[in-house]
Nucleic acid binder design. Structure first.
Length: 436
RNA sequence: GUGAGUAUGGCGUAGUUGGUUAACGCGCCAGUUUGUGGCACUGGAGAUCCUGGGUUCGAAUCCCAGUACUCACCCCA
């Protein structure tokens, strides 16, 4: 027989059971938190018509998208969850209630060269709030409170949600006549933490930005102090550009209201270097860092955009949202041993039959499941030793052996596999549940 | 798209002046121990040494090509 080597494509994550259990737990916590804030679930197809997915596109996105023909259809795999959302809202505009709050957790695809912690197929966990015509700025302030609740829920305390406003940066660029280069400059500024101040200056010089302008940009992003102090310093820079002033006002409002939503100052701050590479953000932008693990980069980011679905509808649909790249986040947490995948089974109990007639063991399992106990019956004809070894290897916490004696006497022993101790009780699901 | 590196049982690895039965750990199977797992001991199964070609009396080892994977850049989650 000509065997095919079993392999998984580069850039695609595949986990062992213990890791998958942990991954699913994280995914579930994220989902529960999103729902607690009233976000509605949404699931859209992984495959869309290329025309729809590439309505905007251009540049890198176009190069990285998986695109293929099936018959006469020109198809593509979604590369994020925002474009499908835009299509969905435009298509179902009449059936949705605005502001439309939706979450979506799903896989997206990017055909780029894989590298450490970077995948071609990965989960994004998105929330967005979409307004009809307008969306009040206070929504921008609620977002950090969701991030805050979420990371608390995931077991983190020492994290910082960094907040900035694109209008401030864009206004600054306008005021120094660098509006045309704004996307490029933003990208460079965004890298300051990684490459350092000097490298940023070098890159700006390559863009033919004048020294005087570079100095302005640098002294701007080097503004220090608390969130309120930074805002005050921005106001006192003497820049009169309209966009700039609007940005400051927005940022000020957001900061005040973030506090209203209960996020402590220890977990958020204004950071003027946060720019986000994506060019569709037009106002508030967010990035979240785990302070003890800065090397992870931003683990949750997003922002405000002026018009979600301009390529699909005339309706004006401003929105604000965030995304967590769960696959990468999980990979890195695991790599740094911040999380431990120590559960190898999801069974609470393994029932081990040592009789021919499986009626009683199967009935007991059904009874246990009915009252919420994850129960598994060992169904292969092996020696008792092998059956116990199975429970041991999967670290199933309890075992119950059922044979002729147990059925006759109506008494069983619940064995704690960690301590090795057994507790005798009645052959009844309720009694067993009390023990485990 | 650009650059560098790696490829040996299921997994992690050893294996260079080219030399005959490819080694070790983990895992797997069996036994010591016929209704009680983990520990220990004993034994066992399991390898187209990535693929194709070349050099050589002889290649896991040297050369060429291909493929895959990894890392970095670009970009991004």
């Amino acid at each position: 027989m000509n065997r095919v080597e079993p392999r998984t494509l580069s850039g695609f994550m595949e986990l062992l059971p213990n890791e998958q259990i942990l991954f699913n737990q994280m995914k579930e916590k994220i989902q529960k938190t999103y729902e607690r804030f009233g976000f509605l679930p949404l699931d859209t197809p992984v495959i869309e018509s290329a025309e729809v997915l590439l309505a905007k596109a251009g540049g890198e996105t176009e190069n990285q998208i998986y695109r293929f023909q099936k018959g006469d259809n020109d198809l593509a795999l979604r590369f994020d969850l925002t474009v499908p959302l835009a299509k969905y809202v435009a298509k179902n505009y009449g059936n949705l209630s605005f502001p439309f709050r939706r979450y979506q957790i799903g896989k997206v695809y990017r055909g780029e060269r894989a590298q450490k912690g970077r995948y071609r197929e990965f989960y994004q966990c998105d929330i967005d709030i979409i307004g009809d015509g307008e969306l009040d700025l206070i929504n921008d302030a609620e977002i950090p409170s969701i991030i805050y609740t979420l990371f608390k829920e995931l077991g983190f305390n020492d994290f910082t949600i960094k907040i900035n406003n694109r209008k401030i940066l864009n206004g600054l660029f306008e005021s120094i006549n660098q509006k045309d280069n704004s996307t490029e400059i933003l990208r460079i500024i965004d890298k300051i933490e990684k490459i350092g101040k000097d490298a940023v200056i070098e890159e700006l010089k390559k863009l033919n930005v004048k020294d005087e302008q570079i100095n302005k940009i640098i002294s701007f992003i080097e503004i220090t102090g608390s969130s309120d102090e930074k805002i005050e310093k921005l106001e006192n820079l003497g820049i009169t550009n309209e966009t700039y002033l609007k940005g400051i006002n927005e940022l000020k409002t957001v900061v005040q209201n973030v506090r209203l939503f209960g996020v402590p100052d220890s977990n958020f701050m204004v950071d003027l270097t946060i720019a986000r590479g994506l060019d569709y953000y037009t106002g508030t932008v967010y990035e979240t860092f785990l302070n003890k693990y800065r090397e992870l980069g931003s683990v949750c980011s997003g922002g405000r955009y002026e018009n979600l679905a301009e390529y699909y509808t005339d309706k004006s649909l401003p929105g604000v949202g965030i995304s967590i790249g769960l696959t990468r986040f999980f990979y890195k947490l695991n790599e740094l041993n911040i999380i431990k995948a120590d559960r190898k089974s999801i069974s609470d109990v393994l029932i081990i039959p040592v009789v021919e007639d499986l009626k009683e063991p199967i009935k007991l399992a059904a009874d246990l499941r009915k009252i919420g106990v994850n129960t598994e019956v060992y169904l292969n004809d092996k020696k008792l030793k092998a059956k116990l070894k199975y429970a041991d290897k999967l670290q199933i916490p309890y075992t119950i052996i059922i044979g002729e004696d147990e059925i006759k006497s109506n008494k069983i022993k619940v064995k704690n596999m960690e301590t090795g101790e057994s507790i005798e009780t009645e052959l009844s699901a309720e009694k067993i549940k009390e023990i485990i």
